[in-house]
Design a protein around this nucleic acid. Structure first.
Lengths: 186, 186
DNA sequence: GTCTATAGGTGGATAGAC
DNA sequence: GTCTATCCACCTATAGAC
């Protein structure tokens, strides 16, 4: 694997576990056995590494959502798979990259803040479409705008992830995710 | 106000907006117009300041819950007031102190991690009792253990706070809070 | 209790050789 | 692309005078 890819891979894990303000170039350099100067060759500033991380994470995430779209028909099953992505990340001891960054929002460079909002907007858009489809099909039931329920789902799953990780208990997340989806059953 | 109290007051705000790893003694010293050395007189180590912050926040929070207990009879109204506490914090541009620290969990001193879990446990305990009372009275409706629903509420409210703040939109939080409580109506 | 002064470490970042 | 060497700003923390 190219160095820049190895850097991104490790930096992603570091942000997901320790946060953007919780890791340094020195951490990456030590783990990859290169010097800090080398890292600056690939990502001149930490803020640019941060931007790259969000962009990459969003692309991979949206690709996973498209995969669900292709493989799964049932809207309710789509929601389960959506929550399943979160569960997998958590099982690996990580937080959602963007959920982590949302906590540090006020300290992030403007460019990162913007890309972060975009990630959540795209998530809400996808969920909103699934919810609308499910309601039309009579498989899901809820009041009000699909987009509003989508926001509740994203927020709740991110929060559940955060607290489950603090308690070192993935089951807490799964229990909450199932409950959220069950509440939407028609 | 005594200096130590002024330090706590400001440090609390800083953690709530920037996180534990996002502020320094220098920030406090500048704002309070004292030296960093003075701060170390009151709180020798940053980790001790952190511990004090959680303890203080929890005491104040639990006092607010007791006040609700005294003033309000209806379980559903208690839930509304509970969410109202979060909304007030958010309206002030802050995150929940402990929600913020939960994101930084992996980087915190062990003592702080422990106090953090205690805060959430107490929250879940209080909410669990309210939920059980509400179900018995026929005012609230849900399946399974009250404690599980309590966890969903805490997680979801924390997550909603986090994302609403990132979008600079308190209404997002209120909409989600209302929806969560409405879903429990009998 | 608050100050000056400073230690000792780490942060992100750059210049220039190889 | 990766290295050595280095800069400067900032971090937490301490010693000791007032």
């Amino acid at each position: 694997m190219e160095t820049s890819e190895r850097i991104l891979e490790l930096a992603e894990r570091l942000v997901q576990t320790r946060g953007y303000n919780g890791f340094s170039y020195a951490d990456i350099a030590a783990a990859l056995k290169v010097t800090k100067a080398s890292l600056h060759y690939h990502f001149p500033a930490k803020s640019e590494l941060g931007r790259s991380l969000i962009g990459r994470y969003e692309r991979n995430f949206l690709a996973a959502l498209e995969a669900i779209e292709r493989k799964v028909k049932s809207p309710r099953e789509k929601l389960r798979r959506y929550a399943g992505i979160y569960a997998e990340v958590l099982r690996d001891g990580r937080m959602c990259l963007c959920g982590m960054l949302a906590a540090e929002y006020a300290t992030l460079p403007k460019a990162m803040q913007q890309e972060l909002r975009h990630f959540f907007d795209e998530n809400e858009r996808w969920l909103g479409a699934v919810l609308e489809q499910g309601r039309r099909a009579g498989e899901l039931e809820f009041s009000g705008a699909p987009r509003e329920v989508a926001r509740l789902l994203v927020s709740s799953l991110e929060g559940a992830m955060m607290l489950a990780r603090s308690h070192g208990d993935v089951r807490r997340f799964r229990a909450i995710a199932e409950r959220l989806i069950a509440a939407l059953a028609a």
